[in-house]
Design a protein around this nucleic acid. Structure first.
Lengths: 228, 228
DNA sequence: CTACTCTGCCCGTACGTGCGGTCAGTTTTC
DNA sequence: GAAAACTGACCGCACGTACGGGCAGAGTAG
């Protein structure tokens, strides 16, 4: 039995969230391996021991970052899926949301994306991994629905989901939330190309891709700013 | 000894390449931060000091991996661009090649992709960065050519190139060269969806995407197996 | 009210380990 | 014999984390 104080009770103290947020930013900036307790503690004016007290180990801290992040993403996905019936609307929503994360929660999004690989092999990541799988399954199911409905041309839904996730998850390497490029424009361009690639007629695709259209508005309502 | 014909003239001899290949594999498996001299040396039955003797620092070793990798990729790109006139053929070739790397040089490809972010800020990576930029510029130019020729529907060529690179560079997180999924099939599916997304007519796109078609054959001839 | 105790948050330090890199010297190659 | 290849011991440091204790507030008894 390791630390009994960490997981169950959810003490949710003020300092705890602050630590997690700072740690997340450091992971986003430098990567997990180069992020360290000392820097986080120094920035918050506390001792390294305090961090250990709250989280136990570095691994668990990262796991908690991933789990919280994916938990929010899953909630949002279920919310906009409930509101958008069309397969092309739903795929567009996934794209709009995926891009939107980069500005809504830049640090957490980058931290998640650059350390996703740890979900596959690292122990202690089972929860986060199954959340990630559930999210991907939602996309795959949507792609299959669209095929059956005749909205998308037939193809390999799993491969297409990976193609789509690649474009979104790679954003952390080039997208700057404070830069000139606006996230809505990125999402719109990605949507247009992807939907056309899936065989969606141009007028239907353009409506779903439109940054001011119904899909983007729905996503904007569902995906609202989260605590830092 | 086991070495194959030690090159007489140059220090670029067998042992050095062996070190680089092993280091590359370790970076691919564990990431740059967790890859270390000790393990590489132990695996090759040599001293840590030998590695330092050949490469100086760890940073430089990674830089050399990236530079060699991008150098080969640039040569190949110029080769198939010279042989394929059509913009849709050229884009398809970039995709076929991008997928092909994953099986031709799995270790180097994964090492490159998972550490690409170091090209942007790390000092000593200027050469590799400019090579990467040159490669991306080739794709962007091809996309613009295709627009002007009326083969692709108008759009943001830079964003489209990032969308495309994302799909390919993300492969290291899910593609298994020894798995059941064949790389040609991945490339074909990616090509079909992407080319259709760019507005290429289905028959023209299908030909360029075909794993046994002229484009794939050209790429297979140009991108041949390289040493580690 | 005071006194006492319990408890959760927090601190500072010290330890062990792993790693990049140095160096003086030896072996191998041409 | 010079240069290159290689060795193994060693250094210094950064980092995760174990540990013992401090402190403040809540609850309780008198």
């Amino acid at each position: 039995m390791t630390g009994p104080a960490v997981a169950p009770g959810r003490p949710r103290g003020g300092r705890r969230d602050e630590i997690l947020a700072t740690f997340t930013r450091h992971v986003a900036d430098r990567g997990y391996d180069r992020a360290n307790f000392g820097d986080v503690a120094a920035e918050l004016g506390m001792s390294k021991g305090t961090i250990v007290h709250h989280f136990g180990t570095k691994d668990r801290m990262l796991a908690e970052v991933q789990e919280r992040y994916m938990g929010r993403r899953l909630d949002e996905a279920h919310a906009f899926l409930a509101r958008l019936p069309g397969p092309e609307q739903r795929i567009a929503a996934f794209v709009h949301a995926g891009v939107r994360y980069s500005t809504l929660e830049p640090a957490t999004t980058v931290a998640f994306q650059r350390e996703v690989v740890r979900l596959t092999d690292e122990p202690g990541m089972e929860t986060a991994r199954s959340q990630r799988d559930a999210y991907r399954d939602l996309v795959v199911a949507t792609l299959r629905d669209g095929e059956e409905a005749g909205v998308f041309v037939p193809g390999d839904a799993r491969l297409r989901s990976l193609q789509m996730f690649g474009s979104l998850h790679w954003m952390w390497t080039w997208f700057d939330p404070d830069g000139r490029l606006r996230p809505e424009d990125v999402a719109a361009e990605f949507c247009r190309t992807l939907l056309r690639g899936l065989g969606v007629p141009d007028d239907l695709g353009a409506l779903a891709a439109d940054p001011h259209g119904p899909v983007a508005r729905c996503v904007a309502e569902v995906c609202v700013s989260a605590p830092g």
